[in-house]
């Protein structure tokens, strides 16, 4: 079953086309990641999906409801963490938890949630005295109190240190294991690669790739690079290997580019056949960053907004 279905979603602010005919579907129980640079349209897409903004065109269905019509009904079964939201900083953690618990007919026990996120010692702490990571955990706890089937996380880990970020990843995996569907946006390619069953790369309001992480990388048509060092002059020989697109040799350093999976075997056999001595063999597969560069022509930057 699809938890989110988006068909030709468009949103424009006057002449500015923030989101341009975006379509995708998020199956129940999956983690769906939306990637893109600042201003690509990620937050606008999220806000149209959860009904915080009116879409200019297209169709959106979330848990069988149209968020433009059944906004309030929807909020009973989704949990959201919005980008850059800070809660009332003079409130204590448990006070906000109690308020959110009173909003839903069948809330999860916030004490258990705080415990689960390692916040039990912070129950009576003012929000302004929490670290960035702790605040984000509180944001998740508040999103989870509704016991939501769909959790929407807009740049949850932006600005967190690497350790807190990895901690968040573990929590997101846990939420998925509980059967919840996660819709997230992120700035971090490695985060998407680690968590997402499907990613959607968006640039200037348009989808440039929509696939599994491996699928995106594969379809971007980039070469795997194998490099090694040798004193022999063998560039010419290597070019004849089947599936090799390009060979570069600079002094001792040889680099070979191919999209063929088993080119490494062929390479080793060939080197042995010619009795070539080699060392420091290294394979680098293209990552999501490279795919992004290939697809958008833009350098990926981990900007902290």
């Amino acid at each position: 079953m699809e938890v989110i279905q988006v068909k030709n979603l468009s949103k424009n602010y006057g002449a500015l086309q923030a989101v341009d005919r975006v379509s995708f579907a998020v199956p129940e129980g999956s983690v769906f990641g939306m990637l893109g640079p600042n201003g690509a349209g990620k937050t606008t897409t999220i806000e149209c999906i959860i009904g915080l903004q009116k879409r200019s065109g297209g169709e959106v269905t979330v848990l069988g409801l149209d968020p433009a019509i059944s906004r309030k009904e929807l909020y009973g079964s989704i949990g959201v963490q919005l980008q850059e939201t800070v809660y009332q900083d003079k409130a204590k953690v448990f006070e906000l938890c109690q308020l959110f618990s009173s909003m839903y007919p069948d809330p999860l026990d916030y004490k258990l949630l705080l415990e689960r996120f390692g916040l039990e010692a912070k129950t009576r702490t003012y929000l302004r005295n929490l670290s960035g990571g702790e605040r984000q955990k509180v944001a998740i706890v508040l999103a989870l109190i509704a016991n939501p089937r769909l959790v929407v996380l807009d740049e949850l880990t932006t600005g967190l240190d690497p350790q807190s970020r990895r901690e968040m990843w573990a929590y997101i995996k846990e939420l998925q294991a509980e059967g919840r569907t996660i819709f997230m946006t992120t700035h971090y390619m490695e985060e998407a690669a680690h968590l997402c069953d499907q990613v959607c790369i968006i640039d200037e309001g348009r989808i440039v790739a929509l696939d599994t992480v491996d699928g995106v990388i594969e379809n971007a048509g980039m070469d795997t690079m194998i490099s090694f060092e040798t004193q022999d002059e063998i560039g010419m020989v290597l070019e004849k290997l089947p599936g090799v697109n390009r060979v570069e040799q600079e002094h001792e350093q040889v680099r070979l580019y191919s999209q063929k999976e088993d080119v490494l075997t062929d390479l080793i056999l060939l080197l042995r056949e010619h009795a070539v001595e080699y060392r420091k063999i290294n394979i680098s597969r293209p990552g999501l960053e490279d795919a992004f560069l290939q697809l958008t022509g833009k350098e990926w930057k981990e900007k902290v907004s």
């Binding site: 959860i50 915080l52 909020y75 989704i78 959201v80 919005l82 980008q83 850059e84 939201t85 800070v86 809660y87 009332q88 900083d89």
Partner: peptide, 9 residues
Amino acid sequence: QKILKRFMA
């Protein structure tokens, strides 16, 4: 601080 917006959701 986007608190109003958060409460909209």
